[in-house]
Simulated scan of single mutants.
Amino acid sequence: GAAGGGGAAGARPAAPAPLRATFRVDVALTWATPDSRPESGARVGVHHGTRESAARLVELGGRFFQLRLEEPIVPAGGDRLVIRSLAPPDTLGGGVVLDPDPRRHGPSRDLLARLTRLERGEPEPEAAPARPAPRPERAPLDPRALELEARLVQAGHEPPLDEDPELLAALREHGRAIRLGPSMHVHPDALDEVHDLVVEIIERDGQITLAQLRDALNTSRKYAQAYLEHFDATKVTLRRGEGRVLRRRPRT
């Protein structure tokens, strides 16, 4: 079937690494038919071994995609995946994991070149001689921290109030949770989506107000205010009267 699509047989991980649970994977996919290929941003079902999760499909160029999962999987480079529609659960295609724990990113020329090398099983190019000392390996997240991350992913832009400071500190250290005000943490993917929305509204309207963000997110004033204060503090936005503007020049 499509899950065994050609061209990816030589793919293997760039370097042996301990397996870890992840909510994102970069993959090379082959579709059962041209009509099977979903739109970028579509939600699909991802089947990996005995695990399955809904995921958002993000195009990276050509046959390369990032899958942003709603439930964690524990993949290795070279693992096979099957992609299905959510309802009815028809097989759309399949493919292979190239990067089992990537950062959240969109397409770029460098990324395309890197994923092509990974798919072919080619080694990474030699790095420049002067390299900083490698950072010490972080301890893997324990199951309770992963459960908390899953709850943050599910909560989206309306995260719960903080409960377990120790687990949140571990997630922060791994870049899997970001402090949103004194008593809330949000998953980075949700924060990125709100960031993109704020930038989009400001570029369209010249500014954003608390009421605008509240309505755009269909959320409460509490959350809208927490996001705007976070973006002020991280120097994305600047408060001007009742609204916020971008600190940087809008993209043209």
Rank of each mutant, 00 (worst) to 15 (best):
P134T: 14
G7C: 03
Q66Y: 04
F64Q: 12
L57K: 01
A216S: 12
E158P: 00
R135Y: 07
R251T: 04
A113S: 05
R172I: 01
A11T: 09
R63C: 02
P72A: 09
E229W: 09
E147Y: 05
A3F: 02
W31I: 14
S183T: 01
F65T: 00
P143W: 04
D205I: 04
L213R: 02
A11G: 09
R179I: 01
R176L: 12
Q225A: 13
Q225N: 08
V58A: 10
A224R: 01
I73N: 00
R172E: 13
D99Q: 13
H174N: 03
A54Q: 08
D99E: 15
E200R: 15
T237C: 13
E149D: 06
P140M: 04
L115I: 15
R117P: 10
G78T: 13
P88L: 11
T91I: 15
R37W: 03
R114Q: 14
I201K: 10
R221T: 03
V96S: 00
D110F: 03
V58Q: 14
A170Q: 14
P102R: 12
H105N: 09
I83T: 04
G78W: 13
G243L: 01
E70A: 13
E147P: 01
L197E: 05
T22N: 13
G93K: 05
L57Y: 05
T30Q: 07
R109Q: 10
G206R: 04
R43P: 05
A211P: 01
E52M: 09
L57Q: 02
V153W: 07
E158A: 09
G62R: 10
R84H: 14
D35M: 03
H230N: 08
A133F: 11
E242D: 11
E124R: 14
R51N: 08
G95Y: 05
R247Q: 14
T33W: 06
G181K: 08
G121C: 00
P123T: 11
A14T: 15
A21M: 02
P72F: 11
A55E: 04
P134C: 07
I201A: 11
L92D: 02
G1L: 12
